[in-house]
């Protein structure tokens, strides 16, 4: 008898509060699978962000800290420097990381902190009800851009992976997506690699996961996956943006 698929141990056995079809559930599982496969559950410390994913502290079977809005990389820096033997990750959405937390994120990368950031980009503020985020696409209709995002007045989306890959302190930056099983498998591989780099002391790692928000996009979960592929992936191309150790693997 061989188990092909079951719930990873690093996820607590409680129902998640996320909406039906939300990408957070899939990404939580991928992180938990990476923790399981590396056998680091007992020494991993997570930092939760503000937004829908704040409740990740209830779902990861690891020690968790709740940071102020956007400050998860700063809190993770402290946790990691005080406990260098532990594996430290943050789990942040785009409203948290790319808006109020931009400074903390950029400087954590610039310092080359040996932490892993799981950055979930769904191009909208989820928990507060679907407002325009820094990552909302040009022309995207949200609660606060009812005529579509006008780049002449509110500017262009922030491409976090491209931006951080320019910093010498960053060791590994990859953008992945969860719109189909092929991309989910690739995302799992990237997240595991980021954690592996951290255990090897290789420095700052960030995985940007392009995800969905069916509720605030006003789409069914199935159609949201299609919208992601048609609209988000052309603007946020998938791939490895930086891998300092690509030649040495």
């Amino acid at each position: 008898m061989a188990v092909v698929f079951e719930r990873p141990h690093a996820l607590t056995d409680v129902p998640m509060h996320y909406c039906p079809g939300c990408g957070h559930g899939i990404i939580h599982r991928l992180v938990a699978e990476a923790i399981d496969s590396l056998g680091i559950e007992g020494k991993t410390i997570g930092v939760a962000s503000v937004g829908c994913s704040v409740f990740s502290y209830n779902y990861f079977n690891t020690d968790m800290v709740q940071a102020a809005h956007g400050r998860a990389p700063a809190v993770a820096t402290g946790v990691k420097r005080a406990n260098p033997e532990n594996v430290v990750f943050t789990y942040q959405g785009d409203g948290d990381l790319a808006a109020i937390g931009t400074a903390e994120t950029v400087h954590a990368a610039a310092r080359g902190e040996n932490i892993t950031i799981i950055f979930v980009n769904n191009a909208i503020y989820g928990m507060t009800g679907g407002q325009m985020a820094p990552t909302s696409l040009p022309g995207q209709i949200t609660q606060t851009s009812p005529y579509g995002r006008d780049v002449n007045t509110v500017g262009y989306p922030v491409k976090v992976s491209e931006m951080l890959s320019q910093l010498d302190g960053a060791a590994y930056i990859e953008r992945v997506a969860i719109n189909n099983t092929k991309n989910i498998r690739a995302a799992a591989k990237a997240i595991k690699k980021a954690f592996t780099y951290q255990t090897e002391g290789k420095g700052f790692t960030l995985i940007e996961v392009v995800s969905t928000c069916p509720t605030n996009w006003g789409l069914t979960p199935e159609k949201a996956m299609g919208w992601l592929e048609e609209n988000m992936l052309p603007y946020y191309p998938l791939g490895v943006y930086k891998d300092k150790y690509a030649d040495k693997n």
Binding site: M1, A2, V3, V4, F5, E6, R7, P8, L11, P15, M16, Y18, P20, G21, C22, G23, H24, G25, I26, R29, I178, N180, T181, I184, R185
Partner: peptide
Amino acid sequence: VGCASCALICPDCVITIIKE
């Protein structure tokens, strides 16, 4: 066939697949 595609995309870990 037990490919686990359904389990892979399920956000809520509803599906378990065992091959005997």
